[in-house]
Design a protein around this nucleic acid. Structure first.
Length: 495
RNA sequence: GGCCCGAUGGCGGAAUGGUUACGCGCCGGACUGCAAAUCCGUUUAUGCCGGUUCGAUUCCGGCUCGGGCCUCCA
């Protein structure tokens, strides 16, 4: 792993791949837009953090000292129009008759559970929006005179006050059909709230005093403030979902420009971050990605159905982060099968390796160079995975060295191959009608029948288990003697 | 309506101006009491119409279809 390719990342600002050049030598400072904790994250949301995690792991692998920040937005966002809707956090609290703070705590924890299940490394900082309100007010005061104007509903940012507004979105701000309900007095349709005043006569659970009256910060403000406070302007990389490329990040950039008193975006440092990266969506043709439709695709739902969460991570890695990825249960099953085979191969390797070398050795140099080239090419994880497969399949090599080579690759991909057991992958679907002990009992009886060459009885027991959602596997190399049939939906579920 | 993106085998999904990765599935073989699991091997694809080119899946134009954003959803 000596011949490193230069790391090239696709910058949304220029729409070009660019060599990564750190702002501070040897360091990489990354800010990722995190969740708004008014509901559970769905697996499409989580794709963004798998992407950010791979980016962070790649930077670490390349030798940069990584400082990663992910924010938690616990300040409410509006539900519909930018300035007229109901606050999402307030709405969730009202619907559940809980304190807005309880709501935030609950969904933050749910998000963190998903993060852990997906083997996403904990960032250096989880920045909590409500802990930065004083800094947000200070930030707003800094830019107010030159870049903002006040209306009865709040303090607004004048997008004409900075150069190149909307460059990131490649959008022209001349508004076409007026589908947005204009806030009375706004100078441009795209002007956005820096501070939202609480309407007269109302009280909100979350509100703060400010020079513009009691209210709450606009949500674009928090990312500017927290990224600047924790990483310093300019920092290296700002990530988020591709939807943020259109509105949120252009606004964030405009705020950063105003705050830094810098000019146009010809100099990428003016935007606050040198590189802006956006992951594409997970698309779901079944329509279960919509949070408004009741049951949507959450990670725990996959687990309940018998799919290990890391199968979902692998599914994400099989596509490039800038491509849309089609979700299907069959596809998830395919990823689980691939992961299972990888894990099994590595487990066998561990059995044979013993106390061996912890370095890959020259036999692996060529493959690792190709891995390096792939991941350096704007995080091409699909190709990186093919290199992993090749390394796993290599014959006549020292097992300990091979294990070390796999370790190098998995440190970036984060599939947990060195620690995951095949047994770990055998999740029992929640809906299964049989428990582990019962399975073991039937399997014992079946073993006895087979020893007696009573194959009629043996097959009957196998059919019983099959009817209960358990597929029997004799002679599995690693003792995985059954698996849940629900985890392999591609096969006809004949009972 | 405005802006933008995409179309690769059964499914997912890479890459490339000239031999179309890889995974899963399918099929064949080994193994098995039979299966399954596992291992080995094999098979199939660049939406349509033009253009540029010695040569296009790749570059350009048009068409069709699909998708995203313009409503704070990654």
């Amino acid at each position: 792993m000596t011949d490193h390719s230069p790391l090239v990342l696709f910058n949304s600002l220029t729409r070009q791949p660019e060599p990564f050049v750190p702002v501070h030598a040897g360091e990489a400072r990354v800010y990722s837009c995190g969740p708004t904790v008014y509901n559970y994250p769905h697996i499409g949301n989580m794709r963004a953090y798998v992407f950010a995690d791979v980016l962070g792991r790649t930077l670490s692998y390349k030798g940069y000292a990584l400082t990663h920040v992910i924010n938690i937005t616990d300040v409410g966002h509006l539900t519909d129009d930018a300035d007229a809707g109901q606050d999402k956090m307030e709405a969730a609290a009202a619907a559940r008759a809980q304190s807005i703070w309880d709501i935030a705590r609950h969904y933050t924890q749910a998000y963190w559970d998903d993060i852990a299940a997906l083997n996403i490394r904990t960032p250096a900082h989880w920045s909590i929006a409500t802990e930065y309100v004083p800094q947000m007010i200070a930030f707003a005061q800094t830019i107010a005179a030159r870049h903002c104007y006040e209306l009865p509903s709040g303090l607004y940012f004048d997008i004409a006050s900075v150069a190149d507004y909307g460059l990131l979105a490649r959008a022209h701000t001349e508004e076409g059909a007026g589908r947005i309900d204009e806030v009375e007095g706004k100078r441009h349709a795209a002007d956005f709230a820096i501070w939202r005043k609480t309407p007269a006569g109302e009280t909100r659970q979350m509100e703060w005093d400010s020079p513009w009256g009691r209210g709450a910060p606009g949500w674009h403000l928090e990312c500017s403030v927290m990224s600047g406070a924790l990483l310093g302007f300019p920092f290296d990389i700002h990530t988020g979902g591709i939807d943020h490329r259109e509105i949120h990040h252009p606004n964030e950039i405009a705020q950063n420009q105003a705050f830094c008193c810098t000019g146009g975006l010809a100099d990428p440092a003016s935007s606050g971050a040198r590189v802006w990266m956006h992951n594409n969506f997970l698309v779901d043709r079944t329509g279960k990605m919509s949070k408004s439709s009741g049951e949507f695709l959450r990670l725990p739902l996959l687990i309940d159905r018998g799919y290990h969460p890391l199968a979902y991570r692998l599914m994400c890695l099989q596509a490039h982060y800038r491509s849309e990825l089609e979700f299907s249960w069959d596809g998830l099953g395919a990823s689980l099968t691939r992961l299972k085979r990888l894990v099994m191969a590595v487990a066998q390797l561990r059995d044979r390796a013993g106390q061996g070398a912890d370095q890959p050795g020259p036999r692996f140099a060529e493959a690792l160079a190709r891995f390096d080239a792939a991941i350096s090419d704007d995080l091409n994880t699909p190709v990186a995975l093919t290199v992993l497969d090749e390394v796993v399949a290599m014959k006549k090599v020292d097992p300990a060295e091979k294990l070390a080579a796999i370790g190098v690759i998995d440190a970036v991909l984060g599939l947990g191959l060195l620690t995951l057991n095949r047994i770990d992958l055998r999740l029992r679907p929640k809906a299964a009608t049989i428990d582990e002990a019962a399975i073991a009992t039937v399997l014992d009886a079946r073993r006895a029948a087979r020893a007696d060459k009573d194959f009629a009885r043996s097959d009957a027991l196998r059919d019983d288990l099959s009817a209960a959602g358990v597929e029997v596997m004799d002679g599995d190399p690693l003792g995985w003697d059954w698996r849940p049939t629900a985890a392999t939906p591609a096969t006809g579920a004949t009972a």
